[in-house]
Design a protein around this nucleic acid. Structure first.
Lengths: 209, 209, 209, 209
DNA sequence: AATGAATGAGAATTCATTCAT
DNA sequence: CATGAATGAATTCTCATTCAT
C-alpha cells in the first residue's frame, strides 16, 4: 500500500517539511541549540507536533543534516555534469556551498554527535566527498588548481569562509560572499607562488575521532 | 577609596585574572553561553566571586572583549614597528589572529550586544582598525597587496578562516592554520588575475546597526 | 435509533471489549495512570477510538470497575450456591479474589474518584457486600469463622494481601498466594486465641467520605 | 576538616532532611511518581534546591530507601535486644513495620530500578534480613511460630498488609492495623491446624531478577 | 571579600484530549 | 466510525542570579 498519499498524510507531510525548513533556517542563523519551541513556532506547528515527528533534538538534527547533505550531493553531481571544466565545477560548487558546513562537519559538539551515528547521513557524506575528489583531480589535471591542495583543504576553507559569510554584517552581506570567494579562488589558482607548508589535507583529515 | 594595592586586593586581583583567563578559554572552546558555574570552576573560584567581580554575563563578556582587543592592538602596533614591509606586517598579524573574531566581531548575538555598548571596547576596536588600515595602505603602496581589497575584506576573511581553524578536526588542526593562511595570502597578492566583484569593503561595512 | 445489532456495531462491540480487556490488564500491571495511547495500542485500536468509546480516562476506569465488580458479584453468588459451608464459600471467594482490590476499594485517588460517582458501580458494590455479609454470618454460625471479625476486616485483609500477591517477585509468585491465603484463613479460624482489639469492622468502615 | 559543621552546612543540612521527610511522606501516600515540585513544596524549598541535593528522582528515591531501611535495621536490632522472646520481638517488629514495604521491596518499577543499583542500600537490606531470620529461628525454637513459614512469607505478608493499612479508609484507619496484625499473628501461631502448601519462602524468594 | 546554597524562571519532553481526514 | 495527527498543558530538569554565612 502506498503510505505517502493517504489524505491525512498530506497534512503531516506538509508539517514535516515546514519543520525541516524552519529548523534548517534557525540552525544556520543561531546554532543547533535554539529552543525547540522556536523552531515549532517558525514552522507554525505546536511543539508536540515537532516532537511527534522527530522524537528529540538529535533526531531533528540528523534529519536536517541528511536533507542538506543530499542537496550537496545533487549540486556536486550537477556541476560535474554541466560545467565544461573541473575548475568551473569547483567554482560553482563553492559558490553555492554556504551550507557546506552542515554537510561536511560542524563545530557544534551536539551536531557532531548526532551526525556520527547516522548511517544514512554518513553514507551521503562519503558520496559527496567522492565526487568532490573527482572535481579536484580534474581541476588539477587541467592545470587550473594548484597541486599542493587536497579535498581536505578545500572543504575546510570553503566551509569556514562560506558559512560565516552568511553571518556577515548587513552592509557587507551582499558583497562579501562573492569577493571572498574570488580571493580564495585566486589563492587556489595554479601555478602557485610557492608551496604550502605541510602536505595536502585529505578527507581523512576531516574526521573527528 | 581603597586603591589597587591594599593587601586584600592582591587576592581579588588574582581571582579576577583567573576568571578572565578561564572565560576566554571557555568562550573560545564552547561559545559565550556556557554555564557561569563552569567558568567559575575552571577559574577555581565560587560562582559568587565571579558575580561579585563581574555583575553578570554581559559584563564578563565585555571584560574579555577588552582584554582581547587590547592584545590585538598591541600586536598590530608591534608588527607595524618591527616588520620591514607592510606585507610582512600583514602576514604576521594574520598569523597571530586566531582571536580576531573576538576582537572585531562575533556571530553570537549575545556577544554582539555586549560589545556594542562598551565605550572603552569600541574605542580600542577603532584604534585597531586605524592601525590595520595603515598596514593595508602600506602593503598596497609596496605593490604587494592587491589594490581592490579593503580592511573590511581582510577583517572578514581572516576573522572567519582563522577563527574556525581552531575548531578543526584534530588531525588537521596542526596543519590547517598554516596552509589556509598561505592560500589566503596567495589570493591577496598583487597583481591579481582579475578584479573582484563589487567594491573594497571598508571598516564601515563591519558595523552591525 | 441504531440498536446494538446493526452490522457496524459488531465491530464497535469488539473494539469496546478489546479496550476493556486491555485496560484491565494494564491497570492491574502498572496502575491507572498509564498512557492512554498504550491502552489503545494493546487493544489494537487508535486512541481516537478509545476516546470515542469512553470519553475520558475516568469513564474508562468506571467501565473497568463495573465489569470487575460484576464478576465479583457472580463469583460470590456462585460460591454461596455451590459450596456446602459458609467457611468453604469464604475460602473460595478469597482464593479467587485477586481482583477484589478493584472491586471494593482502591488506593489510587484517581480510581476512588471515578468509582465514587458511578451509580451502577456503587449499586453492584453494595450487592457484593450484601452477599459477603451473608457468607460471613453463615461461617460464623457454623462456628468456623471467629466471631470478632466483620466484613470490613475481611475485605481489607484479603483485598490488601491478595492484591499484592500479584506483584510478588517471580520466584514467590507461584507459591505466595496459596500460602498467604492459608495463613490468613488460619488466623481467622474459630475459636481464636484471644479477642481482637477494637470492634469488628463493618462495610461502613470501607467508605471514603 | 570536618565538613558537617561549617555554618552554611547547617541550613543545607536542614533542607536536606526536610526534603527526605517530605519525600518519604509523599511517596508513601501517593507513590513514587508524584511531581518533584510537590515534594519541594512540602519540604518548603524550591525545586532547584531539591535537584541540587539529589540530582534526579532516582537519586532521591535511593536516599529515601536508605534512610528507611536503616530505620528498619535499627528497629529489628532493638527488638532482638529488648524483647524477652522471639515471638514478642516478631510482634513488635511487625507492628512497627508500616514502612517495611519500602525496606524490602516495592511494587513500583521505578523504585525497584533505583534500589537495585544502590550498593549501600542493598547492604542494609541484607543486614535487615539477616536479623529477621534470627528472629524467625528464635520464635520457632520457642515453639511459638509455626515451623512451615520462612522469612520470605513473613516479609511478604506484613509488607503487604501493613503497608496498605496506612491507606485504609479514615474510619478504619485507627483500628485496622491492630486488628489485621492480630489476625495475622494468630494465623502464624504454632501449632498450625494444617500445613501450608508449597515450601517456606526464603529471602531468595524476595529477589527480583 | 569568598563561598556555595537557594531560588525560580525557562527549556525539553511527554501525554491527555481534540479534530481533520 | 476509525484513525492517527495536532495541540498545549504539565512535568522534569538546568542554570543565571541572589543571598546567607
Amino acid at each position: 500500500m502506498a503510505t505517502s498519499d493517504s489524505p491525512l498524510r498530506a497534512d503531516a507531510r506538509r508539517n514535516r517539511d515546514q519543520i525541516l525548513v524552519a529548523a534548517r533556517e534557525i540552525f544556520t542563523e543561531r546554532g543547533a541549540e535554539v529552543a525547540m519551541e522556536e523552531i515549532a513556532r517558525r514552522a507554525s506547528v505546536g511543539v508536540g507536533t515537532l516532537y511527534r515527528r522527530f522524537g528529540d533534538r538529535e533526531t531533528l538534527i540528523r534529519a536536517v543534516f541528511r536533507e542538506t547533505i543530499q542537496t550537496v550531493v545533487d549540486e556536486i553531481r550537477a556541476a560535474l555534469a554541466e560545467e565544461p571544466t573541473g575548475w568551473a565545477a569547483l567554482t560553482r560548487i563553492m559558490r553555492q556551498s554556504a551550507w557546506l558546513h552542515v554537510g561536511f562537519q560542524s563545530e557544534s559538539p551536539l551536531v557532531r554527535a548526532a551526525i556520527r551515528v547516522d548511517e544514512e547521513g554518513v553514507r551521503l557524506r562519503e558520496q559527496a566527498l567522492d565526487m568532490l575528489e573527482e572535481v579536484v583531480r580534474k581541476a588539477q589535471a587541467e592545470g587550473a588548481l594548484r597541486r599542493d591542495v587536497g579535498v581536505g583543504d578545500l572543504a575546510l576553507l570553503f566551509m569556514y569562509v562560506m558559512k560565516q559569510t552568511q553571518a556577515a554584517p548587513p552592509q557587507a552581506a551582499a558583497l562579501a560572499p562573492g569577493r571572498l570567494l574570488a580571493i580564495l579562488m585566486d589563492g587556489l589558482r595554479a601555478p602557485a607562488a610557492d608551496g604550502l607548508p605541510g602536505r595536502p589535507l585529505t578527507r581523512a583529515d576531516l574526521e573527528f575521532h
